[in-house]
Each structure stands twice: as C-alpha cells, then as structure tokens.
Amino acid sequence: MAGGHGCRIATLECSAMKRFLIADDHEAVRLGLRAVLEQRADWEVVAEANDGSKALTAAIESRPHVAIVDFSMPRMTGVEVARRIRDYPLQTEVLIFTVHKSGLLAQQAFEAGARAFLTKSDANRSLLAAVDALLVHKRFCSESCRNELDHGAGGEADRGRGLTPREQLVVKLVAEGYSNKGISAILNLSVKTTEAHRAAAMRKLDVNSTAGLVRYAVRAQLVEA
C-alpha cells in the first residue's frame, strides 16, 4: 500500500513538471536561459538546439510545454519554427526571443503562432513573467515593442509581406550562403522548385541579384549582419 501511494505521488510530481525547449545558436544564451528557468523546482529544460531545423525536431520529439526560440537562427527562423509547431500541431507554446526591437517582427511572430515575443534586453525583468503567461496560454509582448506593435511598423521587413513562408526561408538560406542545391537538401525540395521559390522572391522584392536578396535579409533581420 505504502509503495503504491509513493508511486502515485511520484506520478503527480512528474505530471506537474513543466518542460522547456531552448533554441539559440549562442551557447552562452542557452546556458543563461537554462539557469534562470531551472531556478523553479517544477521547471525542467528537456531539450536544446542551436539552429531552427534542430529546434523543430527537438520540439516534435520532446513535446515541451514552452519553446523559447531565437528569432535569428541558422537554417530556419524562429518565426518559421513557430509556424511549423502550430501546423504540426504540437501542444507547445512558443516564445520568440530576439535582440531586435521591432513591432513588425512581433506581429509576424504572433501571426505565425507564437504567443510571446521578448527582446533580450527585456529578459532580466520579463522572462519569468513571459513564461508564466505562456503556461496559462496568455499572450506576452516585450515592453520595448508594445508601442510599435500597437501603432503599426514600416521599414524594410514590410517589403517581405508578400513572400510565402517557404520563399522567406529560401531567402534566409541564400543569405546564409547556401547554394540552390544546398537549400534543396535542407528543405527536401527539388532544385527546380528551389529555383522557382528564389525567382518568385526576387520578383516580389524587386531585386535582380543574390546581393539584393542578402541586403533584404539583413535589413529585414532574417539574418545577423
């Protein structure tokens, strides 16, 4: 009887644990986030990733309650990861974590299915509040972006509103230096399909060279300069 009671307690304790995924291409950031999150006895980091593709795989495998995902990562943006998690679908809330103070990026994140957008400069005072909001399925937006989000935002990233998610991802990978063949392997597409996405993006962005795509990607903060 006592043993059975102990098992039930252990099961209850296990079920109460909140699981987290941290995805950022900087190890120091991941370590810092882990240290903050695991100060809570019932919070556990169950997976880490250093690029967007690995983040999606880790989310599917570990099914965390919350995924904290950097906006600018190799291979796939945090916004694309959020969109894939939503479409899969997984019962995982996504927090986009970024150095960029941009209401437009916050809006893109929310449209993709993320429920929280937090700038790294606000993390010290707001990270735990953002996570607490996510755990009860409430939206959270970084204070430094809230005004801009409420009043709309223009800028270079606005040019990309006509891009499909796949076209935007192709542009990001072009800016990271991948060839059409390399992009095709990452996205599991034919080279011909990749070329079509690339051509469509160039037409929509009104650029006529790889350099033009790279300039757009940097200015739109799809990649770090």
Results as ranks from 00 to 15, higher is better:
Ala58Pro: 02
Glu61Leu: 13
Asp122Tyr: 08
Gln108Met: 14
Asp150Gly: 03
Leu163Lys: 07
Val46Pro: 04
Gly32His: 12
Tyr178Ser: 01
Val171Gln: 10
Ala114Gly: 08
Gly113Ile: 05
Val174Cys: 08
Leu169Gln: 13
His137Asp: 14
Leu127Ile: 04
Gly155Arg: 04
Val207Glu: 01
Lys120Val: 01
Glu48Ser: 12
Arg139Tyr: 07
Glu27Met: 14
Ala67Arg: 06
Leu33Phe: 11
Asn180Val: 11
Ala199Gln: 09
Ala130Leu: 05
Lys192Asn: 00
Ala41His: 15
Cys7Asn: 12
Thr210Arg: 05
Glu93Lys: 01
Val131Ser: 01
Ser126Ile: 02
Ala220Ser: 14
Asp87Tyr: 04
Ser62Ile: 02
Arg146Asn: 08
Ser62Thr: 14
Met202Phe: 02
Arg30Pro: 12
Leu33Gln: 07
Leu135Ser: 14
Met202Gln: 11
Ala114Tyr: 04
Leu118Glu: 02
Asp150Phe: 03
Arg19Met: 03
Ser190Tyr: 01
Gly113Cys: 09
Val174Thr: 06
Thr77Ala: 09
Leu21Arg: 08
Cys7Glu: 11
Arg86Gly: 01
Gly52Pro: 13
Thr194Asp: 03
Leu105Ala: 04
Val131Met: 08
Val171Ala: 13
Ala58Trp: 05
Gln221Glu: 14
Leu134Val: 04
Gly6Gln: 12
Arg198Leu: 14
Gly32Val: 11
Gly78Met: 10
Ala47Leu: 11
Asp42Trp: 12
Lys204Thr: 05
Phe20Pro: 03
Leu135Cys: 12
Ala153Val: 01
Arg40Cys: 11
Asp206His: 11
Phe71Glu: 12
Tyr216Phe: 00
Pro64Tyr: 10
Arg166Cys: 07
Val136Arg: 15
Val94Pro: 06
Ala49Ser: 06
Thr193Asn: 01
Lys181Asn: 06
Lys204Asn: 14
Val81Phe: 10
Gln91Ala: 07
Gly177Gln: 08
Leu31Cys: 10
Gly103Cys: 09
Val131Cys: 04
Ala67Tyr: 08
Gln39Arg: 15
Arg215Gly: 00
Arg161Thr: 13
Asn208Gln: 13
Asp158Trp: 12
Arg30Ala: 12
Cys7Arg: 11
Asn208Gly: 15
Ala41Ser: 15
Ala23Arg: 07
Ala47Cys: 09
Arg63Phe: 01
Gly154Phe: 10
Glu93Arg: 00
Leu37Asn: 11
Asn50Pro: 03
Ser72Asn: 14
Arg146Ser: 12
Ser142Ala: 14
Ser209Asp: 05
Arg203Asn: 13
Ile183Glu: 05
Arg40Trp: 10
Val66Tyr: 06
Phe140Thr: 10
Gly155Pro: 08
Asp25Ala: 09
Glu156Asp: 15
Gly212Gln: 01
Ala201Cys: 02
Phe71Tyr: 15
Ala220Cys: 09
Gln168Ala: 15
Val29Arg: 05
Val79Phe: 03
Ala28Val: 07
Glu111Gln: 15
Gly78Arg: 13
Asp206Asn: 13
Ile85Ser: 10
Leu33His: 02
Glu44Pro: 03
His65Ser: 05
Leu163Tyr: 09
